[in-house]
Design a binder for these strands. Structure first.
Lengths: 339, 339
DNA sequence: TTGTAAGCGTTATCAT
DNA sequence: ATGATAACGCTTACAA
């Protein structure tokens, strides 16, 4: 089936393309009768505008790009959900790219999106991202950029995140208030800000409550902060520091690995060792014992980041100078059985 | 920063746009020296082609569209991962849309993708989809379409799926071989083919092993086949059919809801009641007791569906008649503690 | 009220 | 080897 264009309609009716275009876009200066005719034949020929042509002409694509480390992750899949939901609501399409935690890919993907002329870009940086020319390139092209979750403070753009340091501080302070003293931390990679912030919060809570910080109680999750990290680190921890009485983990998945190991080895939670997760992933309420954790508003983060991005896009169109926002979404401690 | 176009380069060098275009596309008929100059200035001016213009001209967007019921789902997030991975490998971008199990949205989104001139579409149908004009519209426009997972047999296009009936049959047969006799089934919605196929497999296994089919042992998961469905149906089941000795569930999430309820109520798994899941979601190996289930190759399904789609797209370009494939990916029973 | 024509940034044919 | 030109399908200022 041939695809109908404005020209086809124009020829069919023996009028000009311009008039057809105007009629279909509801311009006031077109005769009611002709307009009616045009709409009729448009419908008859099953016309729908070629967005490529529209985009080229109007210089906007009604499309935003998203670059995240991975889609297979409870947190990111909820963020994506929020992004798509909000974007669709405002008539925007969403192109999703995965950096797979590789800086090189991330740079490449930024270029892809720029060439594709997306109206704006949403990013959560890879754990390996330690230089930012690609982000600056986006900004220098005047393409709105919003960073969320894994952000870089030095980049001049809007950001949506939680206060990781405070959340970690609160979590560890709670453990301390419950009487735990030998508190281990299973932290994330050394590079990402969120990982460092949570670590800082952990350390600060100890200090503020006069507990000596013991570096040997800190374990790094370098297997992609996965279930296995929790499982394996728990094993090591118990061997190396049998006197430990609590663990604060960088994320729920790691905590669930810990729980699995402890359950298998008859280490009682929280009697022998308490466990505190991070994210409030759905599964954390389901495992046994259920996991005490920090609620992180993933879906909302997607929605808010997209709202801000679309605002900036509209702003940009009107050539107004853009004002960047930094939104810090509230977190909440969720108390369950594990501590 | 102004975005560089071919024209800018041409002016800078005092030559024609045509030559610049050819040089950058490595046409043979351009002088080596001028070509060198052109490439230099292109780099200097940070040129990258405006894909919108390229697309309009070449009539292909190197973009594919994906419509799925939801992204927040272990199965679909793995499929997406496979799709993006394969698409990126071949230089295609991926636009993702969520139907949220609404037929109306699904139809709308098909139109969006058509207008956007995507080169092909990948779909897993919503549970509510019971008419297919929108799919036929895609085909009549000669846009390659591949259905996966939730498919519709009557549509003439390529399909990638598993053999749900056989997988369910094998699962239930296994339960029977282990001596279970009162086997309940927590099934999915009444409309989707996969839900009906799994139900058919369940029923056929009973019949083939001379166990009477008892409709009162079949429960429907109508809360989006969620954790709650498992939990609530388990409660009802135990009240209404205390003599039940096994449950085959439509999906792992439901099974995990069952496990939660049983654990809370000291019903022993598998001694009192065995549980069999479906999907082999990562969590199924982690819960206690670990879940016996059917392995469903989610990531591979995404990869294969995309491979087929891109093949058809290339085929289409050469105006060859397209041959549709139906690929059935193998499943596998994964035996763990719950049965 | 309708139509003409330029232009968005490319590509590709056909002259030169 | 290079360039002029039309075309892709649409929008929009301007002319009729």
């Amino acid at each position: 089936m041939k695809v109908t264009t404005l020209k086809d309609i124009a020829i069919e009716l023996g009028i000009s393309v311009a008039t057809v275009s105007k009629a279909l876009k509801d311009y006031p200066d077109v005769n009611k009768a002709t307009k009616e005719k045009i709409i009729q034949t448009a419908r008859k020929l099953n016309y729908s505008p070629n967005q490529l042509a529209v985009n080229l002409r109007t210089k906007q694509t009604k499309t935003i790009g998203v670059i995240i480390p991975t889609t297979v992750h409870h947190f990111f899949s909820k963020v994506i959900d929020g992004i798509i939901e909000e974007a669709e609501k405002k008539g925007y399409l969403v192109i999703i790219l995965q950096s797979s935690e590789k800086l090189m890919l991330e740079k490449l993907q930024v270029n892809l999106l720029i060439d594709k002329r997306v109206d704006g870009i949403l990013m959560s940086l890879s754990n390996k991202t330690n230089e930012f020319v690609h982000l600056k390139k986006v900004l220098s092209r005047n393409i709105p950029l919003v960073l969320f979750d894994k952000i870089e403070p030095s980049i001049q753009c809007s950001k949506v995140r939680i206060d990781d340091e405070k959340a970690a501080y609160d979590a560890v302070s709670y453990l301390i208030s419950k009487g735990y003293k030998k508190i281990s931390h299973f932290r994330g990679d050394l590079n990402p800000k969120i990982s460092n912030d949570r670590f800082k919060g952990y350390k600060k809570a100890l200090e503020d409550h006069r507990i000596d910080y013991d570096p040997s109680l800190v374990y790094i999750c370098n297997n992609n902060t996965d279930f296995e990290d929790g499982y394996n680190n728990a094993k090591k921890l118990i061997q190396e520091n049998p006197e430990v009485d609590a663990i604060f983990t960088i994320t729920d998945l790691v905590a669930i690995g810990v729980i699995k190991y402890f359950n298998e080895n008859k280490i009682k939670i929280p009697e022998d060792v308490a466990v505190f997760g991070f994210s409030n992933w759905f599964m954390s309420s389901v495992v046994s014992p259920s996991l005490t954790t920090v609620h992180q508003p993933a879906h909302q983060m997607g929605v808010v980041a997209t709202e801000i991005l679309l605002e900036e896009i509209e702003h940009n169109k009107d050539n107004k100078p853009s004002i960047h926002k930094e939104v810090i979404l509230p977190t909440e401690l969720i108390f369950r059985e594990s501590s």
